[in-house]
Design a protein around this nucleic acid. Structure first.
Lengths: 204, 204
DNA sequence: CACCCCCTCTGACATTTGTCATGCCCGGTG
DNA sequence: CACCGGGCATGACAAATGTCAGAGGGGGTG
């Protein structure tokens, strides 16, 4: 047999990370060479150990999986990235693929299946969970313009228009206009519902 | 040695559940007798297998860990409940303890530690993660009255006052009053920010 | 070049909100 | 029993928000 696949495991939940490391180690063609609990830590570990495959959680403190994947793409082009996530929003998948991620699966898969996917990704294949892919396709592209999305993001915490205007360096009236058009594009009754919808689809 | 501790494992993420089951099985005084991916399934499994300890994820489809714990308390008083969670909101801890849960820990603990806690809980001890406990204490009790909390919940998805009034069977003016007083109690600028804050603290 | 789409702003208007004062009914507490 | 706090409501007002029409500038495409 050839040399084993060197794997980096990044997930902020120690329970999962540890358990996963143990399970993957049972596969004798896989070896977990490093673990990380945060985005920056994952990057540092990747630099230090140059793994073949990085298994990244989508939501981690510091920097999310997609951001890490982007940096990894630049620094270690040979390292393939596989993203694992609990809540798969359609938009995230699109962003992940754009960042050069090779695999994208929900945490509902079995460890056995994950091991297979690590091998597949290492071999150069791509794999996206069919259900998540279907969601992404049916959700389609974001109908929002760049500014609409930006303003909507600033509105996310329920701030009043005046504050959004200040943060975005726009006139209040302009902000209201963007908010209004964004809400109508999303079919929402008001900006708050719009924020919720955009969040669900991963458009913010 | 005495008979092993019979454990029920409930978590919607197959990856974690499977990995955990494998790890816990390495401990020879623990045996995983059942697994479940949803709240109702966890209940059914508990009825069928009467485990000594139920390890429940806080967020599951169908019914959350606290709801399951409440039912379990009534149906299987001998079964001790240990809750595991990724995002520990202060209010959840309080609700969990009220439901008779014996242990409450974040998923950042190690599997080794979890095994110890399962034994401790089985022996009749209680255990709450110190950090979560500190959060819960510093966050204090919800200052909201029952109606304020109810109205705030209905406001959660950004619905207009008219809709909230209809769902809560209240006059619009009354709803506005409750929302207003809730927001001022939480120190929020408006109801949407109030919803966010109450969510964070686990008060809704 | 003409056209279209996006960005930006303004002003005006209707509607929705937040806020406050005030009143009534009820269950508990001193 | 008198008092208080909470639940519930009304009405009125100010402020925030949503909506519309319009208008100038800029970049890209046919």
């Amino acid at each position: 047999m050839t040399t084993p696949v060197r794997v980096l495991l990044a997930d902020d939940e120690h329970l999962i990370r540890g358990a996963l490391a143990a399970l993957l180690s049972l596969e004798d063609d896989l070896v977990v060479v490093a673990e990380a609990a945060t985005g920056p830590e994952a990057l540092a570990m990747a630099r230090a150990h140059a793994p073949d495959v990085a298994v990244l959680d989508l939501q981690m403190p510091g920097a999310d999986g997609v951001k890490v994947a982007t940096s990894l793409r630049a620094e270690l082009p040979a390292c393939r990235v596989l993203i694992v996530t609990s809540h798969g929003r359609p938009g995230h998948l699109k962003r992940a693929l754009a960042a050069g991620v090779r695999g994208f699966v929900p945490k509902t898969v079995s460890a056995q299946r994950l091991a297979e996917l690590i091998r597949a990704v290492h071999a150069g294949n791509r794999y996206v969970d069919p259900e998540l892919a279907a969601d992404a396709i049916s959700a389609g592209d974001s109908p929002l313009t760049a500014r609409e999305a930006e303003v909507l993001e600033h509105a996310a915490d329920g701030a009043p228009v005046a504050e959004i205007a200040e943060r975005a360096a726009l006139a209040e009236g302009t902000v209201r206009n963007y908010l209004s058009s964004a809400a109508s594009k999303l079919g929402a009754e008001n900006r708050h519902a719009a924020v919720r919808l955009a969040r669900e689809r991963g458009w913010v």
